[in-house]
Every structure is written in structure tokens, then in C-alpha cells.
Amino acid sequence: MRNIANIKPSAILVSLIQNSKLSNTVSRIALRDANKQWRAHIAKPTRLRDQHTMLDIADQLRLIIVQVSQRRCRINPTHWATLVHLEADLRAAYLANINLEPLLDTVAANSEHSEVA
């Protein structure tokens, strides 16, 4: 079993955009929108993120999965499993309340919050 906390959706989405070769415009737009949503999501500090964004992105990916399974869209076969796994991983991370690709809050070395005495 894979450790969901270690997946990097940003890298996976970029790879899918570049290599999946989706034949349907609606699917290509859904994938692009999912990537934009994810980039906006990970740009926020961890404590300010809305975890429902992962479900929104998973829904975009589900749209592509449905279109491919109904033969309305073709996908590069080598990327089909990646797409399906990413959608499932996003839903599992949401259910387990796992924050993927956390953005660590930085604390200045000379601030009052630093642990140097």
C-alpha cells in the first residue's frame, strides 16, 4: 500500500497535462482547471487551506475518467492508471484529513517565535 502523504499532485498533474494526450476539449480544460486549482491550493500556508479543494480537483479528474470510460475521450494508455490513482488518492487524503504538499510557515531566526535563547 502506498503512503498517501508522500504523493505530489503538482508533479503528477503537470505530467498528465504534458503526456496524457487527451482527445476531448472538455477533458483537457478539466485537467488544466484542476492544475490551476491545485497550484492555488498549495500556494497558501497550510493552516489557511480549504481541504474541500481536494474534492473539487478529484471531481474534475472524475469527469475525465467518466469521459474516457464512456469512450468520449481518448488518453495515452500509459497515463490512465496515474489519473485514476491520483483521483483516488485525493479523495483518500481528504477523508484521512491529510494535507498534501504542506507549505511550511517560515519563522525568522531573529523573531520572538524562534527557539534560540
Rank of each mutant, 00 (worst) to 15 (best):
N97E: 14
A88C: 10
I75L: 06
T78D: 14
V84W: 02
N35R: 07
H79V: 05
A30F: 02
L55T: 05
M1P: 04
R62G: 01
T53A: 08
D33I: 12
N110V: 10
E87D: 09
I75D: 01
L90V: 04
L13F: 05
H85M: 12
R71T: 15
Y94M: 05
A117Q: 11
R62C: 04
K36D: 13
D50I: 08
V14F: 04
N35I: 08
N19L: 06
L63W: 02
R72D: 13
Q51I: 15
D105P: 03
A58H: 02
N19S: 12
L22K: 01
P9H: 08
A43C: 07
I12T: 15
N76H: 09
S23L: 05
S27Y: 01
L16A: 03
L63G: 01
V84T: 10
T78C: 08
R32I: 14
N99W: 02
I65P: 00
C73R: 00
N110S: 15
V116K: 06
T82L: 05
V107E: 10
A108P: 03
Q60V: 04
V66M: 14
A43L: 07
S20P: 02
A40V: 05
L61V: 09
L13E: 01
L104H: 09
C73N: 11
Q51F: 03
R32F: 14
Q18K: 15
L31N: 03
V107F: 05
T25V: 14
S10W: 01
T106P: 02
N110P: 00
R39C: 07
M1I: 11
S10G: 04
Q70E: 15
L48Q: 11
N97D: 10
K36E: 14
L86G: 00
A93C: 06
A5L: 11
D50C: 06
S111V: 10
A34K: 01
P102G: 09
N3M: 06
V68T: 11
Q18C: 10
N35E: 06
T82W: 00
L90D: 00
V26Q: 07
N24D: 14
R32P: 00
L13R: 00
E101N: 06
R39D: 13
H113Y: 15
R39L: 15
L86S: 00
L86W: 00
K36N: 12
A93N: 04
L86Q: 01
V14Q: 05
L13T: 04
